[in-house]
């Protein structure tokens, strides 16, 4: 394992860490590395860095590594970490801020996650809400695993948890305006 040069890491990561702190409202220095967040996180098992480690990396200025991580994209925003943190920090908000920075810097964990996010947003844009069946089929086709969730579909349909046709909400124009505004904000930010 290569040693980390902390002198240069701290200097190099300073701006990005500051941005993440402002956007999330979390002072990463206050984290005392207890790990309660990571122990309760439902997706930590699949992450490359646990939420605690993400906090630690930010403390040391390794911001670039955090925005390249898979962890920030796997975070389900369930906020269990934030609810249990004994220092009242909100790792969930940090994860969210990191995603925004990652996107701006042009990083995305991998194609699968990017595809999922892309399809999810497109579904919301056209229906005003997510059309689950369409999203799943679209995503599974795009990632070449067409039959992945086919097994659970019948029982979910039977229980009314899944609809065959999209239900569109009223006021889709409002949703559209939100999309337009968000796109403009992003463009201004570039």
């Amino acid at each position: 394992m290569q040693p980390i040069n902390l002198t240069s890491a701290l200097a190099a990561g300073k701006d990005l860490v500051a941005k993440v702190q402002t956007a999330s409202g979390v002072d990463v220095k206050a984290c005392y590395q207890c790990g309660k967040c990571s122990a309760g996180c439902p997706v930590a098992f699949a992450m490359d860095y646990t939420p605690r480690q993400v906090m630690r990396m930010l403390q040391l200025g390794l911001a670039e590594e955090t925005i390249k991580s898979r962890a920030i994209w796997l975070c389900a925003q369930c906020e269990t970490c934030s609810a249990r943190c004994p220092r009242s920090l909100e790792p969930a908000k940090v994860m969210e801020a990191l995603r925004i920075e990652a996107k701006r810097a042009g990083f995305e964990a991998d194609d699968e996650i990017a595809t999922f996010n892309e399809k999810f947003l497109r579904s919301v844009a056209s229906n005003g809400r997510v059309f689950e069946a369409g999203l799943i089929v679209g995503y599974n086709m795009a990632t070449v695993q067409p039959l992945k969730d086919a097994g659970v579909a019948p029982s979910m349909l039977a229980k009314g948890k899944l609809k065959l046709f999209p239900s569109k909400i009223r006021g889709r124009d409002v949703i559209n305006r939100m999309f337009t505004k968000a796109e403009k904000m992003e463009a201004d930010n570039k």
Partner: peptide
């Protein structure tokens, strides 16, 4: 090393979930 996040009953046992923060694994 780590702070426990949850304790919940399972049969007549109690499951304790923490992170071993030295390993970085739940």
């Amino acid at each position: 090393r780590g702070r426990v996040s949850k304790v919940y009953p399972k049969g007549d046992k109690l499951v304790v979930r923490g992170e071993d923060s030295l390993l970085g694994r739940p």
